[in-house]
Each structure stands twice: as C-alpha cells, then as structure tokens.
Design a protein around this nucleic acid. Structure first.
Length: 496
RNA sequence: GCCGACGUAGCUCAGUGGUAGAGCAGCUGAUUCGUAAUCAGCAGGUCGUGAGUUCAAUCCUCACCGUCGGCUCCA
C-alpha cells in the first residue's frame, strides 16, 4: 500500500503541522502542543496499515492528554473506580458464576448467579405476559439448510458452531429467528391474530474470536430475551412504539434512568432492496419522533437484514452500555415465505420486528453487577438475609427463624459457624447481603431478631412479621432502599 | 484472529537450574463471645499442557491451551 493508491479518488487531503512534525491526517489536531498540560501514555496495541489484517503490522501507542492536571487525575480516579466494580471480581467474591479452561467463553452459572438469572427471567415473563406476549422455545440446533435460507450461513459462517449427526450437517443456533419463522408457519395466520408477539428465552452460541472474550460482556453462549412481533405494515409503527415504551419501562425498574438511543442504518453488507431499507429506517425514526424521544444516527451500523433502534443506558459512573435493540425485518418473512390472510381474504406478507430488552441476560447480569457494585437491590439479591446467631445456644432458634424466612419466600442462609458475630457480620458484609439478622440471648428470649442493614444501620430488634413486612415492601416496589423510609442507594457500602 | 504481558494450593500472591512457601478459605479441636477478622493443630500443589536444552527444569528455549490489556469484530 502506498500513498498514491491511498489517495486515489480523494479530492481533499489535509495536512497538519506541529513545529517540525508534519502529519497527513484527517484531523483535527490541536494548534500547539503547549495546550496540553497533562498527559499519560497508557495503552499499546498492534494495528495494521489502514486497519486491514492483510497489511503490514504496526505498533500503536496511545496517550491521554488533558488541559489541566486535575482532569487527568479525575480520569484516572474514574478508571480506579471502574476496576473496583469489575464484575469478574465481584462474581468471584459472591460466587455468582465462573469460567473453566474446558469451555473458553462459556459461563458456568453457580447457584447464586443462576438465582439472579432466574429472577430476571421471572421478571421478564411476567412483564411479557402482561403485554400480550406468548412464549415459545425452539431447538438448540437445526439443519444447515435453514441457515442458508435465513442468510446466517453466508454472513456468519465462521462464527457458527456446526455438528454432523447421521450424516447431516447441523448448526447450533446463533439466533432464534429461523426457528421462530418455522413456528409461524406451523398454522395459517389471520390478520385477526395480529399483532402476534412471540417471546423466546433463547440460548444462542456464537464463536467469537478468542481475543474479544471479556467476562460476561462478551461470551460465546448467552441467553437472549428475544421476541418476534408479527404485524401488518399498517400496524408496524404502533408495535415499534409499544416496544420502545416497554424497553424504557424495564430499564427504569433496574435503576437506569439515563438513556441514549441510536437508529442504525443500512450497512454495506446487506440483503434486500435499498428502498425497503429506506422505508423501514424512516419508520423507526418516525416512531421515536412521534414519542418525542431524542436519538442519534449510527450510519451503516444496522444488521444485514434490517435497520435497528439501539437502546443504551448510562450506569452510575456514567459509562454507556448497549442493551436492547428493536430491528425491523422485511427480509426473513420473505425468505421464509411468511403469509397471513387479510380482511380482504387475500394472502399478505407480514412485517416483523425482532426485539430484545436486556439483550443478553448474561451480559445484563455483568452490567448490573458493575452498576450496583454487587450491592443488588433487595428484589434482585441472590441472598437477601443472613441469620447470625451470636453463640451456638441460639442456633436452634436461629434455625427455626431461617425455616420461617424460607417458607415466606425469602432467600436466606444461616451462619452457625463457631466464629464470633464480628466475623459473621464481616463475611455477610463482604457478600453485600442486604439484611443480617443478629440473634442473641435477648432476641431468642423475646422471639425477635436484631436487624442490621448492609449499610451498617442497626434497626434494632423486631418480630419476624415486622421484618417481613419491611422486606416485602421494598422488594415489591423494586426499591433501591433497604428499608421503607430509609434513604439508601444500595451502592454506598463502606470500603472494605 | 492480530499485538503485548501473564499462568505456582479453592482464592490472593511470594520463591528457586538440585522436584516449593505465606495469608485467607477448608477440616479438627478449643473458645460461646452483641454489630467488619478468637486461638491452636491438620490437610492441601505431577508449579497450565507437550516437546527440547541440561547430569538435573516449576525456573532456560519452542509450540499449544488459557487468562489479562489493547486492536479488529459483536447478526
């Protein structure tokens, strides 16, 4: 690659100069290096001439610079803060999930992590049902031909897992849609059934490049809170609006109140008629416009089969995470020959929207961990209560209390080791257990429990009923508070 | 996949060309204690895997696997 063919077809070339340094660059550059008051070289990576792996490798050195030293210090503090929230470390401390060499990129869910996962599914199922969704499940692997029809085998072959059984080639599903298409065709559909909202908690496998794996944020197997919504062209916009409402409602339940929304348009590698793309993209924009929701455009970032709305949230330290998407798809219905009978008695092609709100449940769990620093709100805490007898004279009473808690649907454990309460509290605290029920002779005698919150607040002795009332109140409100009337953001745990 | 670093007990880490150690966790015993670590003892590792160099490799070399930080990618 030479400068000559690099510049082929370019009409304008920009050159920047800093003292003796002259750079051919798209820019912009700062005027003079004296404007930089603080800098740090912080990253090193391999790169390629023009970003193409076929070209010669280069070393790239990254630096940060700021106009004041304070800004640099603040930035570095933020990085430190982010490190303390690393979901991989917190998951290890709280025994949520783990990784093994035997399955690189495949999460192993431990009991507490699976509890959290199940709570998300439970939450989602209830919401789906209330919004008129039905739920299906499609097979984990389907014959390769199906993936040729859907286009996935052409576009993502290198990222798919295959298996040959009985001399037939099967692909492990990287997406749920083709299976869903088959189920749509199971029976003839009528316009009277529309909008048809079909959800699936689909476990998909995608062979991601080894270098991109990163905790729960980038895995090779994950569960989508997927859904396919089928409707008429006329009904499409209403469905998109419904999905937007639904999505934002969910994020608020999890304490994400700051959203950034993007509309991603047609990529270079796409199937279908550009005109259809244009219409679908316009429809997405109109839906957001009509709801008065601000959005930005990501040019060429859509999926190969359709444009999408991407929902990003900001966490409590300002980082942005992409969660859900809503994607219009006119192509799969066509490729699979989906039809419905309209009011006119004729066959029509339905419009379809793919949507996911959490996106990947595994990834969402990772984001939740970093957002809350592992101090989950009561309704999501895999362990809500730790019962702590002070001496083993209280063990029997403490165990009966534990039994009552569990019977009342509370996620509770007991620490009846022969350690001192200080140690038991410390351990429960490090696991960020919302409630510690300290049981001494006084409580056992009075049939009560001394309630300590993980924030260090001691609520004093109360009866089981009083405790359950408070717990259930904050739980059912999906509150960030630990106790009714107490201001507690859940994240302000004293440093260990 | 690419660039770079790393891989020692369940976890966090120390250490050496002559086959390894601590703290925590675990187990046993003692202690029975009031809101962030009680004491003692025991047990625990073919030093990621394979090959090479060497009288001798956990240590040096190479390959592979995995992890971490970036790049690229993320239907």
């Amino acid at each position: 690659m030479t400068l000559e063919n690099l510049l082929k077809g370019e009409k304008t070339v920009s050159i920047y100069r800093q003292g003796a340094f002259v750079d051919l660059c798209r820019g912009p550059h700062i005027e003079k290096t004296s404007q930089i008051k603080a800098f740090r070289l912080n990253k090193l990576s391999g790169s390629y001439w023009l970003g193409d792996a076929k070209n010669e490798p280069l070393q790239r050195v990254y630096g940060l610079c700021f106009s004041t030293k304070d800004e640099l210090v603040n930035y570095e503090k933020m990085i430190e803060e982010a490190k303390k929230r690393d979901h991989r470390l917190i998951a290890k401390q709280q025994k949520l999930f783990t990784w093994r060499e035997e399955g690189p990129g495949f999460p192993f869910m431990l009991p507490k992590g699976r509890t959290l996962f199940n709570l998300l599914v439970e939450y989602n199922r209830r919401k789906n049902a209330a919004r008129g969704y039905v739920e299906i499940a499609t097979p984990q692997m389907l014959i390769e031909d199906l993936w040729k029809i859907s286009g996935h085998a052409d576009y993502y072959r290198d990222n798919m897992y295959f298996s040959t059984v009985d001399e037939r080639l099967y692909a492990i599903k990287p997406m749920n849609c083709p299976g869903a298409m088959l189920l749509y065709k199971e029976e003839r559909k009528s316009y009277r059934e529309f909008p048809l909202r079909v959800a699936e908690f689909g476990l998909v496998h995608r062979h991601e490049l080894s270098g991109v794996l990163h905790g729960m944020f980038r895995v090779r197997a994950f569960t989508q809170d997927d859904a396919h919504v089928y409707c008429s062209m006329e009904g499409l916009k209403a469905e998109i609006k419904d999905i937007v409402d639904y999505t934002l409602e969910v994020y608020k339940d999890f304490g994400f109140n700051d959203f950034v929304i993007y509309v991603s348009t047609r990529p270079e590698k796409a199937i279908g008629d550009p005109e259809v793309w244009e219409r679908a993209t316009a429809m997405l924009k109109e839906s957001l416009d009509e709801k008065g929701i601000a959005y930005k455009i990501k040019e060429g970032e859509g999926a190969f089969y359709g444009p999408k709305i991407e929902f990003n949230v900001k966490d409590c330290i300002g980082r942005q995470w992409q969660l859900g998407t809503a994607q219009v798809d006119f192509f799969l219905p066509e490729r699979f020959g989906l039809e419905y009978i309209g009011a006119d008695g004729a066959n029509h092609r339905p419009a379809m929207v793919h949507r996911a709100i959490f996106g990947s449940l595994e990834r969402f769990i990772g984001i939740l961990i970093e957002h809350t620093m592992g101090a989950f709100p009561v309704w999501l805490a895999p362990l809500q209560v730790k019962v702590l007898p002070i001496t083993d004279l209280q063990n029997d009473y403490a165990k009966s209390l534990l039994k009552s808690l569990i019977a009342a649907g509370v996620r509770a454990e007991i620490d009846d080791s022969s350690e001192r309460v200080q140690k038991k509290i410390r351990n429960a605290q490090l696991e960020k257990t919302p409630y510690m029920l300290v049981i001494g002779a006084r409580e056992a005698e009075a049939g009560k429990a001394a309630v300590r919150l993980r924030t260090g607040i001691d609520l004093g002795a109360m009866t089981l009923d009083e405790f359950l009332q408070g717990l259930h109140a904050v739980e059912s409100a999906r509150s960030n508070e630990l106790w009714p009337g107490l201001q507690d953001k859940g994240g302000d745990i004293p440093a260990q």
